[in-house]
Structure formats: C-alpha cells, structure tokens
Write a protein that binds this DNA or RNA. Structure first.
Lengths: 207, 207, 207, 207
DNA sequence: GATGAATGAGCATTCATTCAT
DNA sequence: TATGAATGAATGCTCATTCAT
C-alpha cells in the first residue's frame, strides 16, 4: 500500500516528470543548445532539483530521447498486432507525418539513440530495431514491401523522412507527397509485386 | 593608377576567400558550434579581420551555406545540359550519395538557405529552385519521373535524403539502398510509367 | 520509565558518533573540501540527521578537530606519568612521526583548534596547552630541554613538524631526519647541557 | 626598437602582471579557494582577460607559485655568493621569518612545486633544489651544518618552518624561537662541530 | 527525531563581439 | 585595413543548508 513514505517519492516523481515534459518542450522549441536553467524554470523547479534527477545535461537529453523512442516503439508494437501486415507497415511510416511538425527532439533522438547503421550492426538488440524488424518481416512476407530492404535501410529512410517533415514545415501537401515518395519507394518494384502474397494468409481482422 | 588601392582590395578579397574556405572546413569537421576563433586561426587572419568581412557569425554561416548551395546549383545546371532528361534528374539525386559522408554544413545549409516549403511558396526565385525545376520538368515530360511531384517535394526529399546519408555513415549498402528507395519512389507508379516518354525529344532546349 | 526517551537519546548518540567517525575518515582522505553528503552517506544517516547534530559544516569540523586534539592531549597526559621526563617529552614529539602520513585532518585541526600563538596568550587554559606545559616543565627542570622555549614555541614547532611529515610523504629517511632536527634543536645548547639535570630527581610527582 | 606593435604587447603584459599581483594577494588572503572572479575584479580586468592569460585557475596558481618560488631561488643564489658559508646557509632560513606572516600562497606553493620528497628523488633538477644544494654543501664543508642532512631533509624542514611561521602569526617571540629551534637542530651535534672547518679556506670576501 | 528532496548562490570556463592600436 | 587583447553575459554543474513529510 502506498503509505506516507511513498508520498515523498511521488512528489519526486512528479518533479521528475515535470522536468522531462519541460525539457522536451524547451529542447523541441529551441534546439538542444537550450539551457538547463530554462528547462528548470519552465518545470517550476530549482536548477539543483533538475540536477538531482539528471546528473548531467546529457543524461537529461538521453531521458528525453528515450521517452520519445519509447513512444515510437510502442506504436510499432501496437501496429504489429494489426492483421494486415502491409497496412501496419505503412501506417508506421505514415505516423511520422504527425510526429515532428517543427521540433528537433525527435530527429536528434534518432540520431543519438544508437540507431546509426554501424551501431545497428553491433547492437541489433535495440528495441526499436526489434519492433521494426517485426513490422518489416511480416510486410515483406506478405509481398507488400520490397524484399531487398533491411532494418538499417528502414531506419535510415525513417531518419531522412523525419528530417524532411521538419523541412516541409506546415505545408501539408509537401509533407504528404514526400511521404508518398518514400512509401512508394518501399513497395516492391513493378512486376515483382504481390508475388508471395497469396501464400501468406493474413488479413483476418480489419481494425 | 589603380595600383595601391586595387592591391588593398585584392588583399581583402583574398582574406575573404580564405575565411570562407576555412569556415567551411571547420564547420564541416566540428559542427556549427565551432568557434569563430578557430576559423580565423585556420584562415590565418586575426579575429578582427573575420568580423570586418562578416559582421556576425551568422552572416559567415550564411555565406558558407550560400557557397555550398551555389555548387549544388552549378551541378544541377550542368546536368540540365545532359541529353537524357531522366538520367540527368536521377544523377542529380545520386550525386548526393557522395556529398556528405560526415559533415554537417551541407544539411544545415539546406536547412537555412531559405529552402523550406514556406519560403518556396513566397520566394520561388531561389536559384536552386529554378535549377531543380528545369531538371524536374524535363524528366517529367520524358515520363521518367512521376508527374505529381513539385519542386518543394523534391527539395524536401533531397533534404531528407542528405540527412539519411549522414545517418547511414560509412555503411555503403545502407546508403545505396536508401537512395534507391527515394529514387524508385520518384519514378512513375507502375502502369503509368513511360506513357509520355516517346513523345518528348530530350535535350531540345538549352537554358 | 526512561525507556522510550532514553532509547531515542542513545540512538541519537550513536548517530552522532557514527557521523564523527565518518567525518574524520572522509576529511582525512579527501581534505576538508569533501562534501557533507559524502560524510552522511558513509555514516549511514540522512543529510538532515547530520545537520541536526551539527548545525554547520564548520561545527562538524570543529567537533572532528576537537576529537583529534583530545587524543593528543590524552597521549600527553599518559606520557606525563612516565618517570623519565626527557624521554616523555621527546616521545611526545616522536609520536608525531606516525600521526599523519597523508591526512589533512590533524594539521588542519591544529590550525583551527585555537592553538595559534595569539590565542595561546589570551586563552592559556587550552587543554593541550596545559598538557604540554607539564611535559615541558618537567623536561626543562631535568635539563633535557632548553630552558628558553615556551609552550607556544613548542606548539608552533609541532605544527611545523606535522606539516613537514606530510610533505615528506612516505620517505622514511626524510621523516626521521626532520624529526631529529627539531628534537636536537629543542635540546639545551652545548655547554649548558645537563647543568640542572642531576639536581632534579625525575618522576617525583604524579598528576 | 620597440615600435607600435610592441605597445600592444606591453599593455597585455601590464595586465598579466596586474592579474598575477592580484592573484597572489587574493589567494594569500583568502586561500586557494578564492574565486577567479575576485582576482579579476581586484586586478581591474574582465574575467575573460584573466582566462586569456591563464587558461585555467590551476595555470594561474602555478604561475603565482612559480613567481614565489623564483624569489626564493633568487635569494638562495644571492646568498650562495656570500663568503661565509654558514652565515649564508642560516641567513637563508632566517629569511623565511619574514616571508609568510599570514598567507597561504607560500606554503601551498612549496606543496605544489614538485618539491615533495618523492619528487625530489626523481626530479633532482628542480631549481630550488639546486640552489639549496649549493648552500648546503658549502655550509657542510665549512663544518657549520651537520653532515647527515640532505636537501630533501632541508626542504622538508623549510616547509615545516614556513607553516610554523603561519601558525605563530604576529607573535615575534614565538617566530624567532621556532626558527632558533630548527636552526640549532641543523648545527652539528656538540663534539663534532667545526671538525672540518679549518681545512676549508673560505671567507675571503665580506659582503 | 530522521529523512532526503528541494533550493539557489556560487564557481570555473567559453565565446561572440568590440575597439584601441 | 588588420590585429588580437579585452569584455562580460551565459552555461553546466556543485554543495551547504532548509524544510515538508
């Protein structure tokens, strides 16, 4: 049962969350060079409190990034339960449309989450990699995604796409078409399309 | 006689160029946070001289970016003279493969060169826009590029692609496949492909 | 019944002692700049508890110093019971050889324990002063220590000697010879030596 | 000839000296923990200027220490030219009487100048060591200093003596007697004194 | 009494920019 | 015009001390 001793911790937890929320907002708006002071101010805590929770500005950034990545992984996992493998796969990419209207956190998170191609080779146990691998394999087996792409290619494309979204700003048309280009590029080339599809009984449920 | 005054000017010009070259090198190697002092040191001039030529670090960055963009525009213009419109178009994209293995100047240049989608709408006279428009139109008329993409879409894709290249690092396979995805995504969808191609004799006009 | 109240007190006392022990250890190892947090951690108490017992870091240091001084006074008192007055006196100094191979508490304790020459003049009731006075007087009466030194001179010499020991580090030879220099300097000058010795039967009084 | 270009340097040099003087004064008065800001303020320069001249607080301290040590070495070298070897040697020690009425710079300088006993063994080329070696050897040859002391012993004694001076404060009597104790301790033990003296013809000149 | 989370003044250091020479 | 010394606001981080639980 959460007694009196727990309440201290819940206060601390509340502060920790406020700091993380403030950090995401500040870093998104002003870039990663924004000062820790500003984060603390927005969070409504003293700078000492911020540093009690995160030993270093870098540690704070890592936490922010990790949170952002977790949300992405969660989405991938959710979509992995979708019956239509192709739809799940492309929905994942389409979701990026809404992710980053203007901020830098998401892109920098990807850049620092140990997701670069070299890290992918040495550390294939990254949660996002695993989640994307699942989406990719199923979609490839269903014949809706070209068979020659690997997870690192996907991550690289996603990374680029997210940056493109940032560049496109609020121009919805541009955002949409840029997504379309990548998505179509991921489809099997004409002539090879749907070769395997029939052999994989999917699509039992429609969401 | 133009002697002494001219020589001063040419000295100044030489310094300006040395500063720009040094700046590109330093910012590429160490990111945009590299100090102006370091740029001046590498250029072999005093920091005061740097600030005489560029009132602000930002002004220096803009100049560096502009130079980088100009090279890109030059390449686009060169390719515009190529007879095969599709080949010219895709070569332009393929050229990005080699552009930025590691440096940040190019990506940041694109990000700051007034090329974002909104700027494109209000300032359609950007040299890169014009150059890319030419490449795009010809390639679309030849049927080798899907007709529904506009220049801003292209710029956005290019921006994403360049970032993806940075993310892929030295993993050649990943770099290549990421490029392939975008390039294939720019091709006309199956069934509509090559419809117009025969009817457009390539390489008719010179700019 | 004294039960609950007594147990609180004994708990508090135990904590106080644990803090003092931890403080001596931490400050000796890392210097007086070591943080109070580290002391509390080593003592196994919360930082709040530390501050309940010692209102200020300075107060804690004073307590640590006082404890260290007390041990020195105890040694002096023990030696005062030795029959050979000269031996007792010089043993006291020789004991400093082993006191502080590396730590700073002892030297800083001496520096802050109100033992400087001016304090000695105004507060001659300092326990260490009293203890050393006894050792000195007896040794002087026995003719083994020059008659012109006073307790403040002795304290000053001791202070210097302890610092010299710290400076000498682990070089045993140097430590030993430095001690010898001071000890020989405290002996009566040649020609005056042993003048009074015979007339004073050592070890007459017990304190 | 010192032209206009040199004048810049002389300004800078003046600032450098002002910083050093201020630093010595501030650190002497408040200990080595005094802030660089305070040094800059006293020197009448901006904090940036201080850091232009000394890359680090530690570098500043080293410079202050080095200056202090140089003065000591100079005195030793001057005394080395004195005809009476014993007088020169003991004058050197007596000079310490005036060196450090209250400040910590001198003692800390000695502590950090690589003069500890271990460093002495590995780096016998320290200027102060060399200077003291000269004083010591001559004094020992003249029979006025006990033959069993080495330079490290001397440095250790000096270190202790300087600390003792700091402890003695303004009590002149105590300062004097503490010096006497060390000086007498450095003299040859009774009976061995002056043995070698006659065989060494010194004392030609009186200064 | 005990706890430890919160506080914020203070510190060393950096760097874009100015200005006297 | 070129130089580089000087400037000081800003930053990441520490730590003695307070106070709600």
């Amino acid at each position: 049962m959460p007694g009196s001793e727990r309440s201290l911790r819940s206060d601390a937890l509340r502060n920790r969350i406020r700091i993380l929320v403030a950090a995401e907002s500040v870093f998104a708006a002003k870039g990663l060079d924004a000062s820790t002071d500003e984060v603390a101010r927005l969070a409504g805590v003293g700078i000492g409190t911020l540093y009690r929770h995160f030993a270093t500005k870098d540690a704070l950034l890592d936490a922010v990034f990790a949170g952002r990545m977790q949300r992405l992984v969660d989405r991938a996992d959710d979509l992995a339960r979708e019956s239509d493998a192709g739809r799940a796969f492309f929905d994942f990419f389409a979701g990026l449309l809404g992710e980053s209207p203007r901020d830098r956190v998401f892109t920098d998170a990807l850049a620092r989450a140990g997701l670069d191609a070299e890290a992918a080779a040495t550390r294939p146990d990254n949660p996002l990699h695993i989640a994307m691998a699942q989406l990719l394999e199923r979609a490839q087996r269903s014949g809706q995604v070209r068979p020659d792409v690997s997870v690192p290619d996907l991550v690289s494309s996603m990374f680029g796409l997210v940056h493109a979204m940032r560049h496109a700003g609020t121009a919805t048309r541009v955002r949409l078409r840029t997504l379309t280009i990548v998505v179509d590029g991921l489809r099997p080339p004409a002539g090879t399309q749907r070769r395997v599809k029939a052999s994989v009984p999917v699509g039992r449920r429609r969401r």
